[in-house]
């Protein structure tokens, strides 16, 4: 236990990288989820097709392969080497955005057709229909699965260790294990707690947003069973 302060300080050095990677990944995921999710519902076949290729391409391959591809292969093709953290954020966002696109698409499609018709009867334009009527209702449906997706993303941020980003997992593996080998349990105990806490923070924020969104619908927040709609990465 006497090494606990040093273990905490080494992991603390990695915490900003984990948090930045996760936050950056989440922001990119949100942008891509909504962008691709809406494009998947486009009336134009070609647009849907191209978006499908993105979604299936990233869902169909391993995240580690995507990471290595962007970090090692892309520089050869375009002649520009991404900083590891940036490459990592790009992969976290691209990968989870592909899953998020399906969540957004499904939530929009779950809004009853009657709501579209009500909006048409008020002569709202297609953009107004989407923004004012459909999306606010779809949002309530997509928040619980997005929460799961963001937790997956937090967990995935650990693979940035494989391309030398000094985040929490890499700090544990490369700094702590070689130096404090006797404290294996303590080291991993602390690492587990760090991820549990970060996951709890994400869930707390998402629950707060869920309550806010549900209030806007005049509903009590209904927390669905998260299992069957869980998005596995």
């Amino acid at each position: 236990m006497e090494n606990l302060p040093r273990i905490l300080s080494v992991l603390g050095d990695g915490l900003p990288e984990t948090v930045i990677a996760t936050l950056g990944g989440i922001v990119l995921t949100i942008v891509l989820s909504f962008g691709a999710g809406l494009l998947l519902l486009s009336p134009w076949r070609v647009v849907r097709g191209v978006t499908r290729v993105y979604v299936e391409g990233f869902r169909g391959t391993s995240e580690v392969v995507q990471l290595f591809w962007i970090y090692f292969v892309l520089p050869v093709l375009v002649g520009y080497q991404l900083v590891p953290l940036v490459a990592g954020i790009a992969v976290l966002g691209l990968n989870h955005g592909a899953y998020g696109a399906e969540i957004v698409r499904g939530a929009i499609r779950s809004v009853p057709r009657a709501q579209y018709e009500g909006a048409i009867a008020l002569s709202l334009s297609p953009a107004q229909r989407m923004r004012r009527v459909i999306l606010p209702q779809a949002l309530v449906e997509m928040l619980p699965p997005l929460n799961n997706l963001f937790i997956q993303l937090l967990k995935s941020s650990s693979i940035l260790a494989l391309i030398t980003v000094p985040e929490v997992t890499r700090q544990a593996r490369e700094v702590l294990i070689p130096n404090f080998g006797d404290d294996t349990f303590l080291i991993f105990g602390v690492v587990f707690v760090v991820y549990l806490l970060l996951a709890a923070v994400i869930t707390a924020i998402m629950r707060w947003i869920e309550r806010w969104a549900a209030r806007r619908l005049g509903r009590r927040p209904v927390r669905q069973r998260k299992v069957l709609e869980e998005v596995a990465v």
Partner: peptide, 25 residues
Amino acid sequence: MVFQQFNLFPNMTVRGNLIEGPTRV
């Protein structure tokens, strides 16, 4: 049009439903 199932927008209050068309359209 008035619908069988009302089709009010649940994401807006009564006021919101009533002013949506007049302000936006």
